[in-house]
Amino acid sequence: MTAALVAKNLVVVRGSTTLLNDVSLEVSAGELVAVLGPNGAGKSTLLGAVAGDFPLTSGSVTLNGSNIDKLAPNDLARVRAVLPQQISISFPFTVREIVAMGRSPWRDTNDTMRIDAAMQRLDVTALQERVYQTLSVGEQARVSMARVLAQDTPLLLLDEPTAGFDIGQQERFLAIARSLVDEGRGVVAVLHDLNVAMRFATRVVVIHEGRCVASGDPQSVLTPALLSDVYHQKIQVTTTAEGRSVILPEHQ
């Protein structure tokens, strides 16, 4: 049930644009790694490269020691699951049918126990007979996450999993992500909210213009100097009375 993901010196070039330039990433069991950076920095490209979505210009991605290019797609799907940013589903599948698709790599779409558990965890059990297209954006996101959980993989790659969530949903979602890590899974999540990353990530990786500019534990990496530089915006980090760090943009 452990997965060690090692991505070494990833380079992705499309046409004349270098999307990723020599980025490395390691994730082991029990880690929640947050990938941060401004829009267009290459965060989703990094996640896609690690997921094996497209060929790399150079570099390698290994899972538990084996190169993902050498793994059969179905074997890979038993080790890592991916939550894409947004998906549009054709045909009126129900929530339950979609979550059950997560069991497909295991040829086990009737595994009621795992499907029920995944739906319960994301609080979509009440929606299970509803047609996916009739749900709100937030509900759809939770259903997609339930599908990813039903896949029951040791490694999860999540691309902006909390986009479109309100603050309560976001907290509940991150508690789920945390519990996945406590189960010994490895989680990589592209996040936009720096405060969320500060509180929940065991490690952060900051991507800027296709390069990894910093990585390490959130407290020491997310400094005003680095953030102000990366986001082109003066940013301050303050500490609350309870000793929690809060990241805020400075007044102009």
């Binding site: 894409p84 589903i89 599948f93 497909s104 896949q151």
Partner: peptide
Amino acid sequence: DILALGDRPASHLGV
């Protein structure tokens, strides 16, 4: 069935 999710999600499920 799985292709209904789209190409990338389908490939993530081993298709």
